[in-house]
Nucleic acid binder design. Structure first.
Lengths: 310, 310
DNA sequence: CACCTTCTATGAGCGGAACTCATGCTTCGT
DNA sequence: ACGAAGCATGAGTTCCGCTCATAGAAGGTG
């Protein structure tokens, strides 16, 4: 519980919530715009009122209406916050001259996870150019002159700063049509159906069935591909059931092109990592790493347009 | 770990730390001004740089020097933050017309704890007037028309919203001269020395000695007073050893007029509470309560000028 | 040139702020 | 009268924002 005065400001979160709530004269709508819960906005406005000792909204019925001083304050705030944002944006833009980050990355991860979210980062950092190059095997960061790499596996990279993005969770999925055709709603039925395999990870399905108490030599039969993107297409085309990392099929799950066949996900012991050279102090590398991390935390695509918090 | 962009700002803490560090071109001095550790400022500046992907300071030797873009940014920030502060201050001031908070309070607590800190609250809320009236016994908030009361004891007030400020910790103290005269450096010696008692709490010394494994009928002898302020004066005048709440003798401890005779404090089972009427929605009451709470948390007087955080 | 002082950087760890979830309460529309 | 829509609030959780302790680097001083 804090107080506020001439030399101490309420936190940015409070001010922004109030400004937004004032614009809409509605906590619910503000919550929507800010991607918070109505609960959060309600609390924050209340807290701000308490700190300032002033009534900003009058609660009338199931509605909130700005008081006169609330209206003035909101107007001032809108201007002040915009100025601040401008200052920050400008400082980011002139930070260094335009420079290029070279990024080594796995192909499917790039097209299905990174690129859909990338717009927000590039928007916020107009002076950073991106150059994506796909690599599948570990390589020497400095020799290849990559600034950053996305690595899948373990934290076993020499001379590198590694930050885990997330663990891999493999989910059994198929097209709705396939599910209905095969009645593949439980593991035993699923074991009979055609399975789609990734060549470099033949054991994935076996591991998943093991969790469900099924072991069968014939599980290895089915169709085999050497890239996730092919499996995704194959599954969408009802060629079989696939075991796919959640992160790569967000849009398909959302649109219903693919649906989960079970709730039990297979946690592999590998993870995605951001890698940069141990001695690198380039702040743009840090900014990118940091952004990746926050995007990974946020998880779903819903928020792709809204990186960052404060 | 978060990112920053056109619609999301770094937290106020980060910006303020940077602005201050930029003004001094020194993290240590900034830490001093902001009453933070050097560690905190260092981290915050680094975090800001990472979020923005720009180098704001160049680390040269044991010194930090603003980069060109850092300098620009700091200048912008100083203006923006000042504007924001102005807007907030104005909104607080015009919030309601000047009104008076009537506060019921214990006499020594008022003069020794509240009043020394009160300036900051009044400063931040120019539209609030204060009217302090001393009461020692519980009373009816609404009948007496108090807006707020400070209560000592237990949370047993009917129809009231009570917030605990802090527990009472009684510390054995005396003047340096008294300590030397009586060689009262350990409990056994102290038991022989003249003790100062508060009439409403005769058992305090007995309880304290009990903690230290000493029980003696004669402990009740000594000098008796009915207000803490008298005991404080008596102790300062070397009339005896006193068992006093820390909160009431901060300045004496700091200046060395009184010194602790032991490290073991006596925690009584009573506490200080802020009390306001259950149904009260006056935001100024909340603001005052909130401020009291933050002042209590901060503890020592050192920070009296710096209430609140963001 | 060794020493001490004075700055910043960094690993570890903790408390509390800032959320979410679930639910209750009030009002408005039909 | 009933349901929908909106704000308030208790409880619980995550992780930011700090501190403490210590390392490391660079100047200042005899």
């Amino acid at each position: 519980m804090h107080s506020v005065g001439h030399h101490n400001l309420p936190s940015y979160a409070l001010l922004r919530s109030f400004e937004c709530a004032a614009r809409h004269e509605s906590f619910t709508q503000a919550a929507e715009e800010l991607h918070l819960t109505q609960s959060a906005v309600s609390r924050q406005v209340k807290e701000l009122e308490d700190m300032m000792g002033a009534t900003l909204f009058r609660r009338v019925g199931r509605r909130v209406v700005l008081t006169e001083s609330g209206r003035r304050f909101a107007a001032d705030l809108a201007v002040d916050l915009e100025n601040l944002r401008q200052s920050v944006a400008r400082a980011i833009a002139v930070g260094e001259r335009i420079s290029t980050l070279r990024i080594g990355i796995l192909p499917t991860f790039a097209s299905r996870w990174l690129i859909p979210r990338l717009a927000t980062f590039l928007n916020d950092h107009p002076n950073i150019e991106i150059r994506l190059e796909t690599r599948t095997l570990p390589f020497d960061l400095t020799r290849e002159r990559f600034d950053v790499a996305i690595h899948f596996g373990k934290a076993d990279w020499p001379d590198a700063r590694m930050t885990k993005l997330f663990d891999e969770e493999m989910l059994p999925v198929a097209s709705p049509r396939f599910r209905d055709m095969q009645m593949a709603t439980e593991p035993t039925r699923l074991a009979q159906a055609p399975l789609l395999h990734l060549i470099t990870r033949e054991s994935a399905w076996i591991d998943w069935f093991a969790i469900n108490g099924i072991s069968d030599r014939r599980l290895l039969s089915g169709r085999h591909f050497d890239q996730f993107s092919m499996i995704i297409s194959a599954a969408a085309a009802s060629l079989g059931a696939a075991l796919l990392p959640k992160y790569l099929i967000e849009s398909e799950l959302e649109s219903g092109i693919l649906i989960p066949l079970s709730d039990t996900a297979l946690k592999t012991h590998n993870s995605y990592f951001v890698v940069s050279a141990a001695g690198d102090v380039n702040p743009q590398v840090n900014a990118f790493t940091r952004w990746l991390l926050s995007a990974a935390r946020r998880g779903s695509m819903h928020w792709a347009r809204h990186d960052g918090r404060l």
